[in-house]
Computed example of a mutant assay.
Amino acid sequence: MTTEPDPYSPIRRSPPPAFNAPTVILFSIVVLVAVHFFRVYLAGPALEEWFVLNLAFIPGCYGDLAVDCSDRLAGVDYWTPASYMLLHGDAVHIGLNSLWLLVFGTPVARRLGAQRFLAFSIAGSVSGAALFYVINPGLLAPVIGASGAVSALMGAASRFALPRAGRISFMRADIRLPLEPIATCLTNRTVVVFVAAFFGTNFLFSTGLGGALGEGNVAWEAHLGGFAFGFLGFALFDRKMPGSPAF
């Protein structure tokens, strides 16, 4: 009689192939690209404007009703903190987010499974929108992009996929490793350097000095909100394994 091996056994096995991305990652990228292609290249100006009004996150619309918000669908404020991640500004914007989704989302998706991964990504997007709103409550410009969710995946990957020494490879991360407590993670020099680089880059964006890294406005607030949620709250979504802490 044979039994199937337990994928979460503490016994170390060879990591999966580097480019064997989970189906949920490939599906997510296809959806993002399809929505962008339709909105930019197939939809006319009126339909494109409808997409932005009803899917983008607009902080100022949560206050007193402004003229700019009057044409939105009823109840739109309930879903836009998540749906704004479906929209992107241009090919570079969606290309970078798709790349980071592939790199950082792969180990998280392998560890969580498809349903938990999608729930975690949505929660990361909402967390990014929440911090953006706190800092820019009256802004009527639309916020778009999957960067809040991707940043949450970066924060989550920091909790288990960064080695203490050696070469970093998120695509080959050992998903069976127990989740380290936050305090222990912060004694890992690799994690500290990664977190510092993330916050440092977004600090440049916040001061306007990051223009050389990309054109257009960057929603660094959503990046920070998503990353903080992913780093601090990943344990709430993690599959419990022997040795895993609550936080």
Score class of each variant (00 low, 15 high):
S147W: 14
S28P: 00
A165V: 13
A246G: 06
A246N: 11
A91T: 10
A91Q: 13
P81N: 09
I11R: 14
F203G: 13
L32K: 08
A141V: 06
P17Q: 00
S244P: 00
L47E: 09
V24S: 05
G211P: 08
G233D: 01
L118A: 13
G200C: 07
G208E: 05
G138L: 03
P81H: 10
S169I: 01
M171E: 12
I94H: 12
C61T: 00
P22S: 01
L236F: 13
A119V: 07
M154W: 14
H223E: 15
T184I: 09
V108Y: 08
F57M: 05
V193S: 09
G243T: 01
G230K: 02
G44P: 10
N54P: 05
V76M: 06
R176E: 00
F198I: 15
F199V: 05
F199R: 03
V191T: 13
G60E: 03
T207H: 01
F234E: 09
D90A: 07
L186R: 11
P59Q: 01
G233E: 00
A74K: 14
V192P: 03
L153H: 09
T184Q: 11
R13H: 12
D64G: 06
R239Q: 01
N97F: 11
A219L: 10
T190V: 07
R72M: 14
G208M: 04
